[in-house]
Computed example of a mutant assay.
Amino acid sequence: MKKLMITIMLFPLLGFTQIIENVDYISPFNNEVAAVKKGDKWAFIDKEGQIVVEFRDDLVPSDNDNSTYPVFNNERSLITAEKNGIPYFGYIDKSGKTVIKPEFLNATNFKDGVALAIVVEKEIVGYNDIFNKPVAYYHYFEVVIDTAGKATQYLTQLAIHVAPSNKKNQQVPPIITSKLLSNNTVAVKENNKWTIKKIN
């Protein structure tokens, strides 16, 4: 019995190497982790080959170095979740925990502590007695967000005033036209011309 107890106590200390088999793709390391793909799911491993974020189907691949894979920047990685058939974007941290809930119609990876996103704001302008429901306008804005998901600056308003749609031809996220130049400047495109703005 004593021998069995010693074996049980030593078992976790012996340490078995985690084996990841049948992987379809392994990305270069970025922010101390690499993305690995198996089927339709992605995970992240550290430099020891240990999985730090388990395989999941909500990670968002980005174009990087002539390939497409999810990345971590500023300890954040993009995820997507559908609500009423509409894809929304948010972020997880390296433990796999959602730290910015999916609420943006589109979003970019973080760079130097900021990211770009498209937010939708609903404005109730009246009430329709015939259909027994409120009348609302929807305002779409390109914004700068911080690593907590807070909109720190509004950049431009998009000319869309209908509610987000789950129609198949409208399921592609609206395009973010602004570009992050650095942690304190952004290029905003309006009327086919660029304006360089300082990030507040």
Rank of each mutant, 00 (worst) to 15 (best):
I160D: 06
P174H: 06
H139F: 14
G126E: 07
A107F: 04
F131V: 09
G149S: 03
K94C: 00
L116H: 06
K97T: 12
T98L: 06
D129H: 12
G90W: 01
I130M: 06
D129S: 11
S95F: 02
G126H: 07
I176G: 07
K101G: 02
Q171W: 05
V99K: 03
A107I: 05
E123Y: 13
K111Q: 12
Q153A: 05
Y140H: 10
K167P: 10
N109K: 14
D146V: 10
V120N: 14
F89E: 13
K122G: 03
N128W: 03
F141T: 06
K150R: 12
Y154A: 01
D93M: 05
G90R: 01
V143E: 13
A117N: 02
P102K: 04
Y127E: 06
P134A: 14
N169R: 14
E123L: 13
I118Q: 12
A136D: 06
G149H: 11
I145Y: 10
V99D: 05
I160H: 07
A115K: 08
E103V: 15
K94W: 00
K111F: 13
Y137N: 14
I100L: 01
A148H: 08
L155M: 05
F104N: 14
L158P: 06
E103N: 13
I86E: 01
G90S: 10
Q170F: 14
F89A: 02
G113W: 05
T152Q: 11
V119L: 10
G149E: 05
Q171E: 13
P164S: 09
Y88V: 00
Q153F: 00
A163C: 07
F141E: 14
Q170W: 04
Q153S: 03
D112C: 05
E121K: 10
F89V: 10
A107P: 09
V144H: 08
S165H: 03
D112K: 11
A151V: 09
N128L: 02
Y91W: 06
A163N: 09
I124T: 15
L116P: 02
T177K: 10
Q170V: 07
N106M: 01
E142N: 07
Q171C: 11
E123S: 12
Y91L: 02
N166A: 15
T98Y: 04
V144A: 10
A117Y: 01
K111D: 07
K111H: 08
V135K: 09
H139L: 11
